[in-house]
Each structure stands twice: as structure tokens, then as C-alpha cells.
Nucleic acid binder design. Sequence first.
DNA 1: AAACGCATCAACCGCACTGTC
DNA 2: CGACAGTGCGGTTGATGCGTT
Length: 259
Amino acid sequence: MVRQPYLKKGTWSHDEDQKLIAYIRKYGIWNWNEMPKFAGLQRSGKSCRLRWMNYLRPNIRRGNFSREEEETIIHLQKTLGNRWSAIAARLPQRTDNDIKNYWNTRLKKRIMGEKKNSSSATTETKSSMEENSSDADSSMMVDILLDYQIPTMDDFPELAADTTISLSDCDLSVAVDDHYNMAMDNNLVYDHYNMAMDNNLVSSENYWEIENLWGQSLTMEGLDCEVMSPNSQLWLHEPIYACDSYYDPVVELWFNPFI
DNA sequence: AAACGCATCAACCGCACTGTC
DNA sequence: CGACAGTGCGGTTGATGCGTT
């Protein structure tokens, strides 16, 4: 009879966060089920993955959703349904869990309230939205996002899976520039890409945009440890979060992991 | 100050999907 | 083709905080 090791549940402690971050920074993500053991965590792989994806991962934006983000979520939810991961893919720096929570606790109620008031009022709101230029802009942005298909590595079969990719020293531009321009006609993607590459050093914000644009094949999980390393270095280079208006203990962890 | 209700969000659970053998 | 392992996703729950009585 195999004795199951004790697996802790519930809220993560500061110490556990430290261990997971330190481990991933050093070795990258290779196997969620095995990692906790080596990282000295008494957690399931699932729990580690969730904690990482929803809280510890760099470039996660926390705090209040902007009006534009709200409109985007509402629009995408209407179009895509409760496909939170798909919605999150179109909202840089927000996690699917955050979006799901925000929808369930706030937006859904608001929508229900609006519907309850009267259907005519809803129509009125829609037309007033169209009149309002900023709202119209956000609506247009949503349309662009909806039309935009995120490319994956499948779109670039020329690129070998073991290609060394280092955003921090712009190897990426050398490796994929031609393929990218050749394959992508979408100006939105092209602008994001150029915006990032115009900088000598790719900022974490731009990195996030690129990561989203290039799909999961270019994220940590899709890459082996060799390819992971440059990305890890990138995080070390600039572990800055977009939302800087409040204290976040995770930011503190990234800057001072061994406090 | 205590009790209560509600809102929020981190985390869990179960299922589905995908890749490998 | 089926079994299995690893991973991802969406629904749900439970702990916590906050406002109200």
C-alpha cells in the first residue's frame, strides 16, 4: 500500500511563495507534478500551478479594473461566453481567475440590473455609448481584439522547437523577424512587435504583450529549461508590474526573494 | 462592542483535453 | 486504439474583510 505524502491545502504562506518563486527562477517550469517535491513544497502540482498562474507569475496586474477593461470583458463575455481563458488572452496582465471573479461578483450583477430595469434602457445605453467617443474607441478596440487571432508556433513551422529565444538580448528579432513579418498581416500584432523591438531592452510590459501575441508556445510552460533561461533572465532584468499604485507582497518577493 | 449579512477573491475540485507509449 | 499522465479550464467553495444594525 502506497502511502500518500501529506499535501497542504489552503492559503499559501509567504515562505511557500518564496520557495516556488526561487525554484522557478532557478530551474524554470518543467513538470508541475514533480516540481513541488524538488522545491521543498508540500503542495500538489496543481496547487503550485494555480498559485503561479494566478498570483506569483510576473507581469500580473492586480487591483481595480479600468472602465475599458470592464467594457472589454462584457463585450467578450457576450461574444465568447464563459470562456475565461480566451477572454484573459485578450486582456493583457489579467488572469482568467481574476476576470471570472470580477464577472461573477460585479459585472454580472450590473448586467442583470441593467436588464431588469428595462430593455429600452439597455438600448438607450448602447446608443449613448456609441455617441460617446471614448466608449466608441473602447468598442472599436474590442472589435479589433475579437478579429485578432493569436498566432502560435504552429504558424511558424520553420522555427525549430529547440530554438534559443532570448528576448532580453533581442535574439528573438533575429530568429523570427522574417517569419513573423511574412506570416502576419495583422497591423495590430506588427505594431506591438515593433514597439517592443524598438527598445534596446524589452520591458516587462512589452514582454507580456509579446508573450500574449505569440501564444502559449512561447511561454515558460511550452519551453524546456534551456529555452527558459533567457526568459528567466528577462524577469530578473525588470520584474516591474504595471500597477504601481499599491504595495504588492509578490513584488517584494521578486525584488527580495530571500528576506 | 458584538452579531450579522454581504462582497470579494484565493484556492479547490472535477472534468476535459492533449500528448505519449 | 486504449491507457495513462500531465495540464488547462470553469464552476464552486470557504476564509476573510467590511459595512450595517
